[in-house]
Simulated scan of single mutants.
Amino acid sequence: MSNVVQLNKSQGFTRMDNDLYEALIGAELSGRELRVALAIHRLTVGYNVEEARIAASVIAEMSGIAREDVSRAICELIRQRVVYRTGGSRSPMGFAPVAEWAIDQKNTHPSKPKAVPQCGVSTTSIVAFPPHNKDSKDILVPSEPVGAERQPEQGDLISEPVRQPAKVEACPHQAIVDLFHEILPELPSVALLNKTRIQQLQARWRESKVHRDLDFWREYFGMVKSSDFLMGKVRGRGGDKPFRASFDWLIAPRNFVKVVEGNYHA
């Protein structure tokens, strides 16, 4: 009996270009980014098309990843030029040529050798002596052999090591506002960068590593510009007065997620 698994063509199968397949194997993508990339491949090449309109909710259902995390992974894949979009957040997606990929380097720094302790070493003793010992009376001999593990005794104070929180780069509030004015001059301008706006921007900046990049904000405002609804070019339901997004509306938490996922309606 052959150990080779036979391909059941009656159930269908997805072909993948060898260069793309090998590039994905060697790409330093996060696990979430790779799963989202494979889902995009399934929904494009798997249906014999180069690009397709794919909602984040569809990939979320396929992969079991939360929809907002799917949206962030898509933004990250676009930023690294693995995937491209032909327009805004609802535009078709497809894979960019492998030669154009610009994936971030992750965990590539070689480990450094441990520093050698500055002490004298004896070839006949298990006790390590401090260097430059001029007088034997100054030698401090430990009560237990070096390397022996001392068991805590009653009355000892045992404390856990303090872990320092990772520092997050400060939010470039004014640079984000400048991008808003540059890309969306049609929308109401920001005359005052007050405390409330600074707090909202800081919160969006800290939510994800993806957000801590001015290129993300440039693309985010580009999504807004491609939407006739958010730009006030179409009337709402029932012929209501056209809605125009403001800076405050765009950086509010619920609206921010809606724009990133393309989940807003007239």
Rank of each mutant, 00 (worst) to 15 (best):
R32W: 01
V83Y: 02
K233T: 09
E50I: 08
G87S: 14
Q80V: 09
C119S: 06
E68C: 00
K106N: 10
E100L: 08
L192G: 02
T44C: 15
G88S: 13
S208A: 13
A148F: 07
C171T: 00
Y21R: 13
L77Q: 15
I65D: 04
S30H: 08
G232W: 12
Q6E: 15
F247Q: 04
A115F: 05
V190A: 03
R204I: 01
D17A: 13
R204C: 01
V224K: 05
K106V: 14
F256K: 01
D248M: 05
Q164P: 00
R150D: 12
G239T: 03
I59P: 00
V36S: 00
L7T: 08
R206T: 06
E219F: 11
V98E: 09
R42K: 08
G239P: 06
M223N: 07
F243S: 04
M231S: 08
N194A: 09
A115Y: 07
V146F: 07
T123Y: 08
V224N: 02
A52Y: 04
K209E: 12
V257Q: 05
M223D: 04
A115L: 13
G12E: 15
Q11G: 14
I103A: 06
F221M: 07
H132E: 10
R235Y: 09
A266L: 07
H41Y: 14
M231G: 13
V82F: 05
L193G: 03
D240V: 07
W217D: 02
E169W: 01
Q174M: 06
A55K: 00
V127P: 03
T196R: 09
R15E: 15
N107R: 12
G31E: 05
E28C: 09
L187V: 14
D240Q: 08
E207G: 03
D135I: 10
G238R: 12
D104E: 13
I40E: 04
V70M: 00
V259M: 12
R235M: 11
V49Q: 11
P145S: 07
A245H: 00
F247K: 02
G155P: 00
G232C: 11
L7W: 05
A37N: 05
R90A: 07
I25R: 12
E261S: 01
K241W: 10
L24G: 13
A148C: 06
N3G: 01
R254D: 03
F229M: 14
N194F: 05
H265K: 06
L20E: 12
F129V: 12
G155C: 00
F247G: 03
S136D: 14
L193K: 15
F243T: 03
F229E: 11
T196C: 01
P117T: 08
A170H: 01
P92I: 08
K167Y: 02
R204T: 01
C75N: 15
Q105C: 03
W101M: 10
E76S: 12
E22V: 13
L20Q: 10
M62I: 13
